[in-house]
Design a binder for these strands. Structure first.
Lengths: 335, 335
DNA sequence: CTGTTAGCGCATTCAG
DNA sequence: CTGAATGCGCTAACAG
């Protein structure tokens, strides 16, 4: 029944018979305080139910013990897996992660970034929603470390990504090997880099096979989730179903798969299908989904290590661009 | 290339030729400032790249414009959907959501709660990881509003939940109707209330059908995800597969389904299967999954409305316990 | 409508 | 190893 936060470091100090400075020390550098004193202070903290005021600490310190993680879609298992990687690294170092969702919208992304800046996070991990990185450079110039996730940087920023051109090539080469001649590429907004790069790879595969670019029809939908996939399938059904469909991620592919099934189109007999990301659900789908696998957890883990390294030593830090290679996983949907 | 946060409200004030108080007003109550002055200040803010220091604001105000959301598993689409409901309500009111993951672990939950308390959030939405709510009552006594999500409260707290006993009953009654005689209940840790309640409902269904409690075998696994499901399936395969399996959530069921398929056990011919939550993937599974549907998005939405109501008027607020009824969705896996 | 002022609670000097 | 003093940047209350 005690009333609000009347209990500050001062009350604790009084109760333990020490000065506020000493309490601060047991909170932040316990080793510098005599064992007996420390114990007394800790007991006072417990008895009073004292909770440190993070805002005051952050204000004083100039920065918080938190980093921001901005993803395109928290509902996408790909990003959940990335977040696991981030979390695992960060929790070892007693930092907090503020998870933000841009929903692929540059506007929401900007708002997220503003909140993170206001919170004075030490750094930001982000999968940008478009190619305009000026805001991120602004952040960096303000002293906030920035690492791009699943998006290669161009030199003045760290990044951890996967070769999306290679992935698109892998997927379409596979479909062509299987005999496809008329293909579709189901994708989210072409403002999203991954979507463009994967298409670039797809077209390269076409060229290498001696086929014209028009053998691959683009189907663009506004959101990269199952709903978007269903929408794409509708368009495809209306315009004539191709031999093979390459989807820019697995969520889209799952949506396509379901809508196709409802329309009586069989996968892979009538049309072959391949997704991207190899999320866990893909292998459990009605027709197990072929996909392009990426080292997702590693992406989060390594990005975070890079970020913390930059935070700890901003001057002596050299920006790195790390790029992984994706891998083809063939399952029933394109067998 | 400007150096760190040297630019505060003071510099902005100077540049705009007004006092710091006025800048604060355009930031927080723009309507109280003359249009011309406001414009001048906003321009100064833009030119200087000023970003309000949230810690200072929070420190001064005594509380932040944020609420905490603590879920059992961010990887579970059920909670992602809840979070969508929360987000939609909160963003209308210009608050931020700090999303935390307890991973079903009381220890992690406690740490999350400590961080939220340190951040001086206005309120906390939480699906508790166990029955010990003392920490939450502590928070509430400290002036932080608390609403339980997917967990009924007992009177001194708000809650929004779904009748899990009814859900368990629904699921098992359905399996019995279909002719099952030997059943299994695949569940996460029995410290989790939902798991216990759903079992209670399952047993009630058994009783109503005149069957003994031992007709339902418990299979407890440590995590309520696909991995846990696979583990459960292994145990089941070793001990003799029952007629029907009820899983405490869809992730478990999906894991069971896959493992069973690999072992050559057919669903629903050899064994019927039903999950819980009706996540989107369930209908797209290899065998579309029967499930118990809950008003997930509503859970998040209404919980947040309750929370904000309590924040805005702590004294004149009467705690409410809202309970929804679940719904049976029959698909291929138990047809 | 705008300016002035006094802390919010803590961490960090620098002495002792 | 401990204590006293100072101010981080901002908001709210009040004065003008």
């Amino acid at each position: 029944m005690s009333t609000l936060g009347t209990v500050g470091i001062k009350e604790v100090a009084q109760r333990a018979g020490v000065s506020p400075g000493t309490v601060s020390n047991v909170l932040n550098r316990p080793e510098r305080v005599a064992v007996a004193t420390r114990a007394r202070v800790q007991q006072a903290i417990r008895e009073l139910g004292f909770v440190r005021n993070g805002s005051a600490a952050t204000l004083r310190a100039g920065q918080s013990r938190a980093i921001g993680l901005v993803v395109l879609d928290v509902g996408n298992p790909f990003f959940v897996e990335v977040a696991r990687g981030v979390e695992d690294v960060v929790s070892d170092r007693d930092h907090a992660v503020i998870l933000c969702n841009s929903g692929e919208s540059p506007g929401r992304e900007a708002r997220n970034l503003r909140v993170l800046a206001e919170q004075r996070v030490r750094g930001v991990l982000i999968t940008p929603a478009d190619e305009d990185l000026s805001m991120l450079e602004g952040l960096r110039d303000r002293g906030v470390a920035v690492v791009l996730v699943d998006h290669p940087a161009t030199g003045d920023l760290c990044s951890v990504s996967v070769d999306d051109v290679a992935g698109g090539d892998l997927a379409v080469t596979h479909l062509l090997d299987r005999g496809a001649e008329r293909l579709a590429y189901v994708t989210g907004p072409l403002g999203i880099r991954q979507c463009v790069e994967r298409r670039k790879g797809a077209r390269r595969a076409l060229r290498n096979a001696g086929l014209p670019a028009r053998a691959l029809e683009d189907v663009v939908v506004p959101e990269m989730n199952a709903g978007g996939g269903a929408l794409a399938a509708e368009k495809l059904l209306a315009g004539g179903v191709p031999d093979a469909i390459f989807c820019a991620n697995d969520l889209l592919a799952l949506g396509v798969l379901r809508a196709l099934a409802q329309a009586g189109v069989r996968v892979p007999d009538d049309v072959a299908l391949i997704g991207y990301d190899d999320i866990e659900f893909s292998s459990a789908a009605a027709v197990p989904l072929s996909s392009i696998r990426q080292p997702t957890y590693q992406l989060g883990k390594i990005a975070t290590e890079l970020l913390l390294e930059e935070c700890d030593d901003p001057s002596g830090h050299a920006h790195q661009q790390i790029m992984f290679q994706p891998e083809l996983v063939v399952r029933e949907s394109s067998r």
